[in-house]
Simulated assay, not measured.
Amino acid sequence: MDLELHGKVTLITGPAKGMGRAVSLAFAREGAVLVLAGRDTAAIEPVAAEARAMGVQALVIACDMTRPAQTEALAAAALQAFGRIDVLVNVAGGSGPIGKTGWETSTEEFEAIVQLNMTGCFNTMHAVLPGMVERKSGKVVNVGGTFGMRGRAGRMAYAASKWGLRGITKSFALEAGPYGINVNCVAPGMVDGPRFRDKVCANMADKLGISLDEAMTRHAADYALKRVSTDADVANACLFLASDVSRQITGIDLPVDGGWALL
């Protein structure tokens, strides 16, 4: 199916690795024009190079999403380069403390992950939406998480930040809908990769005295499909919500979790 994303100017935050890299290259394969934003531009450049090798334009811009002045400058630079922003995909985020109860979590840890996962997405939407409203067209896809749908012991701060992002998404969807703009949230479950293996599985393995492979198997057992999601699964969901195939869908949480949130 042609998702008709060819030539669509797509701003993606957090594109250097993991889900962000997979999302960026998925849009590149569809022929989108990429604006790749993050704090470490040296880490983003290899992704941009891969995209350019596919024949698409890829602009790399340094931006700390927690700083409003930088997100406003990011949107301005993208508009100057390409004249519009058709799609915003907010992937940038962090995991916060892992394995700590709420009362063990420090105020600083809580505020840091809320600032990154919630305020960062608000800042980019605040910067990009006015242009979309003016053109009466646009797609916003926020990458949340299923812990923001069910909560999770030992991940209170992260769950709170992703739960808050759901509220931001739904409110923006109601406000932007009359202007023909779709705002949705992709909610990954556990996604196989370095963060999952080296942090989440390592924490379980250490606590239970089991191997990393056993920890991965235990996580997979929690899901209806008995398998952990991949970066490509998340990227495909972002493509769907960024395309007009999903034109009548807005304000939703789309779990990409093998059936964890429903259990």
Rank of each mutant, 00 (worst) to 15 (best):
L263E: 09
P255H: 04
A77E: 12
D86P: 03
A26S: 12
R195V: 13
A187P: 07
E111M: 08
A78V: 11
I181C: 10
L208H: 10
F240L: 15
V47M: 05
M118P: 00
T124F: 00
A153L: 13
K226N: 12
I98Q: 08
V191R: 04
S161Q: 03
R152Q: 15
L225Y: 07
T71P: 07
G177R: 10
T71W: 01
G189I: 07
C63V: 12
L212N: 12
L262I: 15
V183Q: 12
E108V: 11
Y158N: 13
P130S: 03
T107I: 13
T169Y: 03
G259D: 04
I61P: 11
G151Q: 03
G31V: 08
G151H: 02
G259R: 06
S229I: 02
G177Y: 01
V9F: 03
V186G: 02
D86I: 03
G251Y: 04
V183I: 13
R135Q: 14
A173M: 06
L208D: 11
N236G: 14
L88D: 00
A76L: 11
A42Y: 01
G83A: 05
G189H: 03
A48T: 08
L262F: 10
H219I: 14
K207G: 14
K139D: 03
I61G: 07
A127Q: 05
I113A: 05
L79G: 12
N184A: 07
M190W: 14
D233E: 05
A205C: 09
T13I: 00
S246D: 02
A73Y: 01
L239R: 09
P178N: 11
D206W: 09
E134F: 05
L225M: 14
V234D: 05
A73M: 08
C238F: 02
F27A: 05
T10Q: 04
G14H: 00
R29E: 13
R218T: 10
W260P: 08
N182A: 14
P15N: 12
I249A: 09
N184K: 06
G131A: 12
V140I: 15
N142V: 03
V60W: 10
I85Q: 06
A221H: 08
D231R: 09
